[in-house]
Design a protein around this nucleic acid. Sequence first.
DNA 1: CAGGGTGAGTAGACACTGTCTACTCACCCT
DNA 2: AGGGTGAGTAGACAGTGTCTACTCACCCTG
Lengths: 191, 191
Amino acid sequence: MSEHDGGLRARLIDVGVDLVTAEGVQALSLREIARRAGVSHGAPRRHFPTHLELLSAIARRGFEDLAALGAAALGDDTASPRDRLATLARVYLDFALTHRGMHELMFRHDLLRSDSLGLRETSLPVFALLTDLVGRVRPDADARLLAGSLLAQLHGIAQLWTWGSLQLTTGADDVEPLLRTALDAHLGTER
Amino acid sequence: MSEHDGGLRARLIDVGVDLVTAEGVQALSLREIARRAGVSHGAPRRHFPTHLELLSAIARRGFEDLAALGAAALGDDTASPRDRLATLARVYLDFALTHRGMHELMFRHDLLRSDSLGLRETSLPVFALLTDLVGRVRPDADARLLAGSLLAQLHGIAQLWTWGSLQLTTGADDVEPLLRTALDAHLGTER
DNA sequence: CAGGGTGAGTAGACACTGTCTACTCACCCT
DNA sequence: AGGGTGAGTAGACAGTGTCTACTCACCCTG
């Protein structure tokens, strides 16, 4: 009846993205998503055999959006590798703090099937770019290790900042100084 | 009847600690804990008004254990600040990777009441020590910011390593190189 | 054009969860 | 001696994810 909008499968994902953005991860029950999509609680099963699969599809949308934001922010940027890394880092942190529910979902491995996330198509290229840029800023270091460390750094800041721990311990009320410190540590302080 | 062992309250926490260690966070249902403690599903309510409160008490045990491990590893250590920081970092990572369920619980803020965790008594002193040591290794930097960055770094590594992302991207099969890279980034490479 | 098959959605059941409430009952204190 | 209190029990309730039997529109083939 109302399938002209592209099918139930896509509609369920859309509803899920809106829901997690507006109300957080705990609102993403299978039955609530079905309710908001206007179908019975058994309907999603036709398209997603299990709850995990549906949540994974929703999270996948998050990874895609994040990768798109990163690509857009760089654009045809001709800035220095160091500045481009700072841009990427800010995009990630901004995404995590703006879309808290989605970011939480994206790393709730107990709710996701990692092989349904399409990381190979979205996140891996971004990480390759990260590694390349890091290698150009610090030709002396092991680029893969340093890039991995930087990624973990950003993720940790996003997590602990959202959780509120870092505001207490650092006394700051803005992530920016922390981000600067982290970038300086990994990439050197010369600008 | 069998309260000679110290009361139901303590027994529930013990059962919870064992359970999360053995089977992970998702096994920590209120009713399962009550079952394993040999009481009815309503009994815990006498001691913990809500599920969150019980989980928080279990997580608190984790924070206490972690702080104790850190203190024990340092002991009356007279090593350099840099080496003591490395020790603390290894203790944290080792704890996170060994007690995965407990570590996950400790940072699942949706399952915890942060004011029931006793962080002020356990974690804050550790962070103060961290800040002090960082300040001695890098007297030029803002110690609080750099310590916060380092903490987030460690947390991010623990999280992403457990999740498996970093093995893929860095190609390593051991955390040690990553930890070394992170420590060098924050504290300088000279030993 | 008739009729069988298939795929999508419905509706109800099941076991499980956390919370709430009424109840028992041993124990203690005046 | 007897009332009150605190701890634990047992059942109800709404909510969850999964499974299964069912309807029913649609298409494809004969």
